[in-house]
Amino acid sequence: MSNIKEAFKNGKAFIPFITCGDPDLETTKKAVIEAERNGADLIELGIPFSDPTAEGPVIQEANIRALKNGITTDDIFEFVKELRKVVKVPMVFMTYVNVVFSYGAEKFASKCKETGIDGIILPDLPFEEKGEFAEIMKANGVDLISLIAPTSEDRIEMIAKEAEGFIYVVSSLGVTGVRSEINTDIESMVTLIRRNTDIPCAVGFGISTPEQAKAMASVSDGAIVGSAIIKILAEYDTSAPQHIGKYVKKMKEAI
């Protein structure tokens, strides 16, 4: 059991996503600090992957920008170790299963524990395949976050019953990216999840405006925002952190 539950004790949780090393780790550090100072309850840190199949164009490009600078998983663990000295809110990694598998799940999990990472989101690791990783993560106090999608239907019960940390409710079909409308009946999904578990549910994919965040958080326990933040980084580069701070403040206030 990690500290993730603390993130949901301050009203509805606002969870920003930031790709490590986009455009450099110094900027990532400042962005995380600004996000926490302005009300972020949990930080999702992306470890870049060469072929992020669950991402839309915005986060794909962030991955490319970060990898171009030669950033590695080891660099990111070093970075998180330093970051942990100044950031108190829970932090989770979001990356692809090959990054963890290649590093070695044991070594990866123990480094998470050592550096203060509370959980991990692997969008290409579904329920059926989690066995190889789940026990190792658990033994190191790292929550393996489960995703539930609009197409999960009869799978919700099974996934929710074994979920840890929080449940990442995928708002829409498709990949990550800003959407003008979210039409999924999130409320029914969350109701079904809550029948099977009491861990919190946060909604992500497609959220960019305060109105959307408010709507999503009103039927769940929080909102996750990725692409909209990455867009700020793409636009303002190393001066993005202060803009991210303002954005996080606006979003947290809205929910």
Binding site: D124, E128, S146, A149, G174
Partner: peptide, 20 residues
């Protein structure tokens, strides 16, 4: 059943596609 060939194979895909 899970589509394994020795240690290889499996279904490492997003939850969105699992029911498909």
């Amino acid at each position: 059943k899970k589509g394994r060939f020795g240690i290889h194979g499996g279904q490492y895909i997003p939850e969105t596609l699992m029911n498909a």
